[in-house]
Simulated assay, not measured.
Amino acid sequence: MTTETLRENPPTTIIAAFFGFLVSTVSAIAGALLILSARDEIAATLRRANPGMPADQLDRLTLLGQLVPVAIAVVIALVYLWLSFKLKAGRNWARVTLTVFTLLQAASLLTTAPSWAASVSCGVAVVATVLGYLPPSNRYIAGVRRAG
């Protein structure tokens, strides 16, 4: 069996893991976008921390406080999507990297007060990770490695 044939026929477990990581990524982005709706809360926190700050500076800092986390989330999402496609192509290094990211994501839930989106994203990523290590997934990745 050629690498091309293997890539065209990933098992259901890999396809489910792939879609699971896609759903996890979308829910994480949704959570990050909630920051855009938290402008008043961010401004109030900054105002309390810096009582004498001029209004224009407070506005700029509030905007920065919204945009930086969203930009970071978008970059992470792009990397996550790229890794998801590499997993679907049978790359073990992508599976391992996604596993590490999922473990870090789970650890972050234990150390913060997670949003609903973060909890959903992590839960789906955990399920996708498990699917990526089931026997059909292992056989597929081993087959791609042998053919490659």
Rank of each mutant, 00 (worst) to 15 (best):
V100I: 13
F101D: 10
F101R: 06
T102H: 10
T102S: 13
T102L: 12
T102P: 14
L103M: 13
L103C: 15
L103D: 07
L103W: 05
L104V: 14
Q105H: 15
Q105A: 15
Q105V: 00
Q105F: 11
Q105C: 00
A106C: 07
A106V: 12
A107R: 13
L109E: 10
L109Q: 11
L110M: 14
L110T: 07
T111F: 11
T111D: 02
T111L: 15
T111A: 14
T112Y: 01
T112I: 01
A113K: 10
A113N: 14
A113R: 09
A113I: 00
P114L: 02
P114E: 05
P114K: 03
S115G: 14
S115P: 05
S115H: 13
S115V: 00
S115M: 08
W116S: 13
W116M: 12
W116G: 12
W116V: 10
A117R: 00
A118S: 12
S119Q: 14
S119N: 06
S119W: 03
V120S: 06
S121W: 05
S121D: 04
C122P: 02
G123Y: 07
G123F: 07
V124E: 07
A125W: 03
A125M: 05
V126K: 01
V127S: 09
V127H: 09
A128Q: 06
A128S: 11
A128Y: 07
A128V: 04
T129Y: 07
T129K: 08
V130A: 14
V130R: 09
G132E: 09
Y133Q: 10
Y133C: 04
Y133A: 11
L134G: 11
